[in-house]
């Protein structure tokens, strides 16, 4: 088991390294020119040289790549081109805010989606099943910002049930109130992610319901409800773990649009500002950090899957 975890960890490091390389080449090799892009068409040649010197862009590409990766390893994310402050100081508080939003969303999404999938599977072919599967996936292809606007328009502006911003006023920031303000943005994320997770859960439950071992349980004389809880759920929910991890990238991507609509000072809002200002230092760090989060979630999911599945557990402990 230890060996398995170490191996998975090694692969994760490789993945993050490759992400760094991809990101680096996207910004440095493609026919863009960071200095020119950043400073604009009016910049003089001296401005460009000075800019390149300050940000180390005058070194060879490989030197830049390894210099950058070395800095990353030391936790040095560089300096924002736009604000001339450390990227770390700019991103850390924003990430803190985003984690709150993502956390609330996650705790809303996972149980609701799994419950939806199980209900659909148990009522296979009935109207509620169609509603969950077709409705869920249809909701999932509508972008978060569209959902956010629809929600703001209806329950925010028209019916005024929920606050239309994601951030309570100063002096009113109790934890409960903060969560209350995050519910509406979380629902927009839920609407996008519900469909996939429910779909895979449903497939897993149906497979287990139709399995030979479920038949064995029923033919042992177990009543169906007990057989489902004892024999179906554990086997059925295993694949769901992997799917939830696979949805983390979409969750992070969705944060950007949702934060902007709800005017929330998170990671996404900072990134959007960086895009507008072409602040590569912030953008690069943003990508690295988000893939780090994604890779960590995948690692956790892989290990969890192996621990819960005796077949793999045995294989990896050999």
């Amino acid at each position: 088991m230890k060996q398995f975890i170490l191996k998975r960890l090694g692969l994760s490091v490789v993945t993050v390294f490759l992400v760094a390389v991809i990101v680096f080449f996207l910004t440095h090799i493609l026919p863009g020119n960071v200095a020119r892009q950043y400073l604009g068409k009016g910049a003089t040649e001296e401005d460009l040289v000075e800019f390149r010197r300050v940000f180390g862009l005058d070194r060879s590409l490989l030197a830049q790549l390894f210099g950058w990766i070395g800095d990353l390893l030391h936790g040095d994310l560089g300096e924002s081109m736009q604000y001339r402050v450390s990227v770390k100081d700019l991103l850390l508080p924003a990430i803190g805010y985003s984690s709150k939003l993502a956390g609330v969303a996650f705790f809303l999404i996972v149980p609701i989606s799994i419950a939806g999938g199980v209900i659909a599977a148990m009522n296979r072919g009935k109207k509620i099943d169609r509603a969950i599967t077709v409705g869920g996936l249809s909701a999932a292809v509508i972008p978060e910002f569209v959902w956010a606007i629809v929600l703001v328009l209806t329950v925010g502006v028209t019916f005024q049930i929920f606050p239309v911003s994601a951030f309570p006023d100063e002096g009113n920031r109790s934890i409960l109130n903060q969560i209350w303000y995050l519910i509406l943005p979380s629902i927009s994320l839920l609407l996008v992610l519900f469909g996939y997770i429910a779909r895979i859960t449903r497939a897993g439950v149906i497979e287990a319901l139709e399995s030979d071992y479920m038949r064995t349980a029923v033919l042992k004389g177990m009543i169906r409800r007990k057989a489902v809880s004892k024999h179906v759920l554990r086997n059925a929910l295993l694949p769901t773990i992997a799917v939830i991890a696979s949805q983390v990238p979409y969750l992070i991507g969705g944060l950007i649009a949702v934060e902007i609509v709800f005017n929330y000072p998170g990671f996404g809002t900072v990134l959007k500002g960086a895009v507008d200002a072409r602040d590569y230092a912030v953008l690069q760090s943003g990508v690295i950090i988000s893939s780090l989060v994604i890779v960590i979630f995948q690692l956790i999911a892989d290990i969890l899957f192996a621990v819960l599945n005796p077949r793999i557990r045995q294989k990896v402990s050999e």
């Binding site: 399995s211 030979d212 064995t216 033919l219 042992k220 004389g221 024999h231 086997n235 005796p310 077949r311």
Partner: peptide, 19 residues
Amino acid sequence: RRSAISMVYQNPATALNPT
């Protein structure tokens, strides 16, 4: 089924719960 009738099937491997 609990007390009087039982069954043995083809593919015994899949008739047992893997977990």
